[in-house]
């Protein structure tokens, strides 16, 4: 498809050259464009073939014809609904707690503790360096039933622990998104103006800062959602009935359902990213409109 487009485009540009009566001085351009298209097409094949392959495979359940049987089988599975529901709730909780931790911190660091910024940023980047499996291993040891904080002793405690683990996993992305959002507004002047009008801290953060970084916060939220919804390692090692471990178990026991699940998971990720780019676009337009 895109190859056709490129040949067409090159034809058109060739025509234009003939009309001009000579090649352009930058004859390296055509060469560069050729390699660009090559890189893009090879990349495109690599990325689309697995998606097409998965889709095709997921429709193969009934012998000899394409059907939606695999999807029906997945969607009717009560464990699918339970685990997906569990993961959605975990994701929402992660987003709320993540915002509560990240937004005031990023705001406060920008307003009052600019010298702490490198330290805080370093901490927020740690989850990219320390593998999640190491951290969750630490959870199991640190919060066991005989520890100072026996969170793994109760179901609710484990849920909360998992949720905090997810907040930690998403921290590099949420913090960066919110901090970038804050960098586009003059935090100090806005705050001082609000204080001079007698606004309280709750009012300042809730009514002034949050709306201004709404787009950034939503970006972080959708990213968190995409990370949490299919997360496997932490949920599995903490023995929680989440969507990720469910998919893994299904994959080990069935043939066609996993492909259907992969398509569904891809659609969920796509929806998150689509909403994310929609939100960024809307907020950007809104800002440009001011």
């Amino acid at each position: 498809m895109s190859f056709l487009l490129s040949t067409l485009r090159r034809r058109l540009s060739l025509k234009r050259l003939q009309r001009r009566g000579g090649p352009r001085p930058k004859s390296g351009n055509g060469f560069r464009r050729f390699w660009s298209w090559t890189a893009l097409i090879v990349g495109g094949l690599y990325f689309f073939l697995p998606l097409i392959g998965t889709l095709e495979f997921s429709l193969r359940m009934r012998r000899g014809e394409y059907s939606l049987d695999a999807y029906r089988s997945v969607l009717e599975d009560p464990r699918f609904q339970q685990t997906l529901g569990y993961s959605v709730i975990m994701a929402l909780a992660t987003i709320v707690v993540g915002i509560l931790i990240v937004v005031p911190t990023a705001y406060w660091v920008r307003l009052r503790l600019p010298r702490w910024r490198p330290v805080i940023e370093f901490i927020t980047l740690l989850p990219l360096v320390i593998p999640a499996i190491v951290v969750v291993f630490g959870y199991i040891r640190l919060f066991n039933t005989s520890s100072f904080l026996p969170m793994t002793g109760t179901t609710m405690g484990t849920n909360i622990l998992l949720m905090f683990g997810y907040v930690m996993l998403a921290l590099p992305y949420t913090y960066r998104a919110v901090d970038t959002g804050l960098s586009t507004i003059d935090v100090r002047s806005l705050t001082e103006a609000a204080q001079s009008l007698g606004a309280s801290w709750v009012t300042i953060i809730g009514r002034l800062i949050l709306p201004n970084v709404f787009g950034a916060v939503m970006s972080g939220a959708f990213l968190s959602f995409a990370i949490v919804i299919g997360e496997f390692t932490m949920a599995s090692l903490l023995n929680r009935p989440a969507f990720g471990p469910y998919m893994q178990i299904l994959g080990a026991n069935r043939a066609y359902e996993p492909a259907a699940l992969a398509v569904i998971a891809f659609a969920i990720t796509w929806a998150c990213m689509g909403l994310l780019s929609l939100v960024t676009r809307i907020t950007r337009v809104g800002r440009a409109g001011k």
Binding site: P50, L51, G53, T54, E56, F57, S58, G230, F232, G244, M247, Q248, G251, P258, A259, L261, A262, A265, F266
Partner: peptide, 9 residues
């Protein structure tokens, strides 16, 4: 997990 499924398929 779903990425693994996609590549198996």
């Amino acid at each position: 997990v779903p990425l693994a499924f996609a590549f198996i398929a």
